[in-house]
């Protein structure tokens, strides 16, 4: 093996390491991304444990919340969460994929909803004092919700501890 050949491979290896460093270690998870690309337009991601919640906007269809099991690479059913009369705005999921917090628009008003997947139940969480919820975060342990609320001309953040 000639020294020039070794030098060329050394240079190529250094270049790949350098480019790898420039990528900041970000490696696309192609198996999941192919599934995500099939959804079409999507946004508002929330990642926790092996779960990815997002809002899917299929062409010609109403936007809806999807929860993807990353081990299976497929969405799971969310019976009773997506309604024909509502439009999801922001979603967050917990580590177990059990609780989803959702801000949605329904009948010209925005509302905060907690969905529990094991019992397929959605519960309206009142905003007090009154305000318009916009964006939601759920702690991965599923016990705290932080929601951005428009109130009195300000954006504020309300915190709710869940039992």
């Amino acid at each position: 093996m000639s020294s020039s050949w070794i030098q060329r491979w050394g240079a190529l290896l250094s270049l790949s390491l350098l480019l790898g460093g420039c990528q900041g270690g970000l490696r696309p998870v192609n198996s999941v991304n192919q599934q995500l690309n099939r959804i079409g337009s999507s946004g508002s991601p929330s990642l926790a444990g092996g779960w990815l919640a997002l809002i899917a906007n299929r062409a010609g269809a109403r936007a809806q919340v999807q929860l993807i099991d990353l081990q299976r690479g497929a969405p799971v059913p969310l019976m009773g969460l997506n309604r024909a009369d509502s439009l999801p705005i922001s979603v967050a999921v917990d580590q177990q994929g059990e609780r989803l917090a959702l801000v949605r628009q329904r009948d010209d008003r925005s509302e905060l909803v907690l969905y529990r997947r094991s019992i397929q139940a959605a519960q309206l969480l009142p905003i007090e004092p009154a305000g318009v919820p916009q964006r939601v975060s759920l702690s991965a342990d599923g016990r705290v919700i932080a929601v951005q609320v428009s109130r009195g001309g300000f954006w504020q953040v309300d915190l709710l501890e869940l039992p």
Partner: peptide, 21 residues
Amino acid sequence: MAVEVISGGSQRVQLFDLSGL
């Protein structure tokens, strides 16, 4: 990490692996 990106004029979510980083 999941990232909502604009790519080719369309909005989509992509997943990236940060293990090793």
